[in-house]
Amino acid sequence: MKHLISMRDLSADKIVQLLELAASLEKDPSQIDLSRKVMAAMFYEASTRTRMSFESAMKRLGGEVIAMVGTSGTSVEKGETLADTAKIMARYSDIIVMRHPNEGAARYVSEQVDIPVVNAGDGANQHPTQSLLDLYTILKSQGTLEGLKLALVGDLKYGRTVHSLAYALAPFKPEFYFVSPKSLKMPSHILNDLTNKGISFREKTTIENIVPEIDIMYVTRIQRERFPDREEYEKVKNAYIINANMLKKAKDNMKVLHPLPRVNEISTDVDSTQYAYYFDQAENGVYMRQAILTTLLGEAK
């Protein structure tokens, strides 16, 4: 594995290796020493969570970070091409972690430089480190990835995270409930792909009846601007707000996940229940990113 650009490039074996390394690094981070290694964060778009999670991952293994955050005041504003900026960054660092609004930007940069490149989000296309930390979180909370029942809730039409997660889980024989308003259903090309892979799923518009059955509830935000009609948004918005009362009949092992930031789609009264796992999920991101950085820097033992 030279770069991490897209979940499509990863075999099931490689995913399992990364999950195992993340678990091992969580237990004992001292086994890896990335001191004298420099990570360049090239963030053409604002992102607090992903960038700081990467910085924390690198620094906790002893590495250093240099960062370009946003393009204001940089050579990019003067008209420098992405390829030139990346080639310079590659002279300054040992690994590039990048986010860019254009789809395919990370793949392009990976062809231009001879150090490893990690895609930290390219427009609506891929965000593989999020998918991997989601898998790690599900594995950690359930003890297995095999045969789980998951409800993916919220904006399933535009949500890059849920699309990617559905594919990432496919090798592990999941059963999905896709819960969304009618206008934000999972795209048909993804449903077709899942059918072809023999994955079972059911589409729902409400969450209440399935709560007692599921192992994982993965919640995403419904954005008002996705609705052509304000009235329709007002009608459905409350149906997808998860509160503690709705979780009373949940199984003991059930966990609620969210890629964060949440706005109001998970009530704060869920935070103190045994089901809340989204803050652990954010922490797991550091271990998974440590596993990714270690592997790409050739330091995995």
Partner: peptide, 12 residues
């Protein structure tokens, strides 16, 4: 045909 594709933003 994807206007947000990097190929439409960079000389490549």
């Amino acid at each position: 045909p994807n206007p947000k594709c990097i190929t439409n933003a960079e000389p490549m």
